[in-house]
């Protein structure tokens, strides 16, 4: 098949693989997408989209401080990610300000702190790569950390898969039968912070929330089974990452943006054509009733 006069499908796929940085980018982004996609199912069902947004932005100062102190950036991100949620809970409880407002003001505050810190701390932190991701320029130590964190999150989510499903579905029942809901809440939050950290390498801090929401939302339109939802979510995330990276390579586009756009297009496709919940199907359903 010929894509353009100079490009066949074969070379479209193969040529980028001759570059070491592209192989690494494709592998790491797929891994990151899988982790975020897995978590995405839980966040979508729990209604934590805004929380995902908050945490992913709030890890910014943590990443900067950790870089400056020479600590693993995951540690800094984790402390600030969980810290932001604790702060949101505290302000909500102690004031009459509504929750969505509190979330908005806390995470923008953290984010601003991060930006100010970057400008103040003289180091080799590249603000652009934090904001927009740099999957093509990922370093070896970042690779190790990403693999470690990804494995950790996947293992945690696998062990507590059913408990987390119950927690998202009916936390009161979980509490009633003696399951530690407090632990599950913070487990999900911890995984969210960690996933945000690995996700920001791929698509950057601004767009990482898309990695945490869109695949789950797409899968939600396509199935009525929880297990299938996680599988579809992970697959759609991985496919989006591959498409995004290839497209950005050939057409010289921003990689993070391309990955997220690919996710958005897959979502729109599901939104239109999902066999049960797509709008065309629903339209037909209503037409049949008339």
């Amino acid at each position: 098949m010929e894509l353009c006069s100079f490009l066949t499908l074969d070379s479209f796929i193969r040529d980028p693989l001759t570059h070491d940085f592209m192989r690494k980018a494709l592998l790491m982004s797929s891994l990151v997408a899988a982790v975020c996609g897995l978590l995405s199912s839980y966040l979508t069902l729990k209604g934590w989209a805004l929380m995902g947004d908050a945490v992913s932005h709030s890890v910014m100062p943590g990443v900067v401080v950790a870089y400056a102190l020479g600590l693993p950036f995951s540690l800094g991100a984790f402390i600030f990610g969980v810290g932001s949620v604790a702060l949101i809970g505290f302000i909500k409880q102690k004031s009459r300000v509504k929750e969505d407002t509190v979330i908005g003001l806390v995470f923008t505050g953290f984010f601003a702190l991060g930006i100010v810190l970057v400008s103040k701390i003289k180091s080799n932190i590249d603000l652009h790569s934090i904001l927009f991701g740099s999957p093509l320029g990922i370093s070896l130590s970042d690779v190790k950390q990403t693999i470690f964190i990804s494995l950790l999150v996947v293992i945690l989510l696998s062990i507590f898969r059913k408990d987390l499903m119950l927690y998202c579905f009916d936390p009161r029942h979980a509490k009633t039968v003696g399951i530690n809901v407090f632990f599950l809440h913070y487990l999900l939050l911890t995984c969210l912070s960690l996933a945000a950290v690995v996700g920001l390498q791929s698509v950057g801090i601004i767009l990482v929330v898309a990695m945490l929401i869109t695949p789950g939302a797409t899968a939600y339109l396509l199935t009525d089974k929880f297990d299938n939802m996680t599988i579809i979510s992970v697959l759609s995330a991985i496919i989006s990452s591959l498409i995004g990276i290839y497209v950005s390579f050939w057409f010289d586009l921003e990689t993070g943006g391309s990955i997220v756009l690919a996710q958005t297009f897959i979502f729109l496709f599901a939104f239109l054509f999902a066999p049960r919940y797509g709008i065309f199907k629903l339209k037909k359903l209503f037409a049949d009733y008339k």
Binding site: L45, K162, D163, M165, L166, C168, F169, D170, H173, A174, V177, G178, I179, Y220, T223, D224, K225, F226, N228, M229
Partner: peptide
């Protein structure tokens, strides 16, 4: 929520 009757009732046994 994408969950079947069987899975909901099974949650009664989780504890």
């Amino acid at each position: 929520f994408p969950i079947s009757v069987w899975d909901v009732v099974m949650m009664g046994r989780y504890g």
